[in-house]
Design a protein around this nucleic acid. Sequence first.
DNA 1: GCAGAAACGGAACGGTCGGTCCACATCAGG
DNA 2: CCTGATGTGGACCGACCGTTCCGTTTCTGC
Lengths: 187, 187
Amino acid sequence: MTTTPTPTRKDAARNRSLLLAAAEDLFRDAGLDVTLKDVARHAGVGVGTVYRHFPTKDDLVAALFAQQLEAEIERARKSVEAGDSWEALVDYLKESMRLQSSNRGLRALMCPAGSVFDSVRECKAVVNPLIDQLVKSAHAQGTLRPDCTSRDIALLQVGLVGIMDATPEDPNAYRRHLALFLDGVRV
Amino acid sequence: MTTTPTPTRKDAARNRSLLLAAAEDLFRDAGLDVTLKDVARHAGVGVGTVYRHFPTKDDLVAALFAQQLEAEIERARKSVEAGDSWEALVDYLKESMRLQSSNRGLRALMCPAGSVFDSVRECKAVVNPLIDQLVKSAHAQGTLRPDCTSRDIALLQVGLVGIMDATPEDPNAYRRHLALFLDGVRV
DNA sequence: GCAGAAACGGAACGGTCGGTCCACATCAGG
DNA sequence: CCTGATGTGGACCGACCGTTCCGTTTCTGC
């Protein structure tokens, strides 16, 4: 898990961008199992070039999703700062799940199996307390069932990801489940 | 997907049993990704012997889970025949999910990805109409939210499987989500 | 435009998987 | 027993993956 410096040479910088763009496309649509040979071909470069820029596949994945993980943290923070607790919790869930539904790679990353990545573990370590806070606020406000814990919310997210993975033909199928669940835990 | 006849010779019959037992153990605990070499070693035989009894890995899987799929159908049928519609639906879900939670291989088989198996597709083709019926009955009885469809129930199951896969350290974690969801769709 | 550093591309490596093959062991009927 | 049919085991095959290596190409500072 090495941090790769941005290259100085013009062609190298260009290829790095091409690689990240190709990886983003492929990982988004086909998940993290995509071959690095595919990424290289899609970017119009050789495999060797991939490994020059990213020592391992994990490094490529980490570099690619670093920004999205940051966004996930930011999203949770924004929701915590919002006023209405129920709406804040729901908005966070909707937005977080919407992004995961449109990105198969991100989904694989956020699942427990993806915790082999330091960056993912760090992200969760930051986000989880924020969700705790969202849940506590909603409890205090009396808009969330008192026995609904932040672990319940975490498992809800896991379940929704399972639904997304199972319904690639209907990327919005998960919304139905989310809505029904929320109906059950409100007030 | 060939049907393998039960062998006549004594040693062959014994090895077949050993293989099925080993496969059951390994698939239950570690999922369908277990290597056939592992199955062979666990059974104390060579790989060649595996392929004599089961021409492909899929044949082994199909032979192993045929009985469990039958049981799944029987479970659904029983629930349809039961009187109380809400209880029937809930009992079916609880029992079906309990079995899947205790068997990682069965879980992989019942997920959409497992539908490459004819036997699984057949099982679903039989079970789905039965679930339709359970849902319809509950609607008629007025114990299930009118807008909760059998597809919602199917997605609930998919979500629960996702939770099970994500919480191997707590095989009962899914029950919490099931309970909360059911609270939301009752009456 | 030249020289050397930097980057490139893709053949090749080591590992794993499902599956095949065949010399050898084992069983069952006469 | 003994003999032929049946079953066995594990070396081996081909495909695929992440990764390495190195001869060749491309860039950059002078």
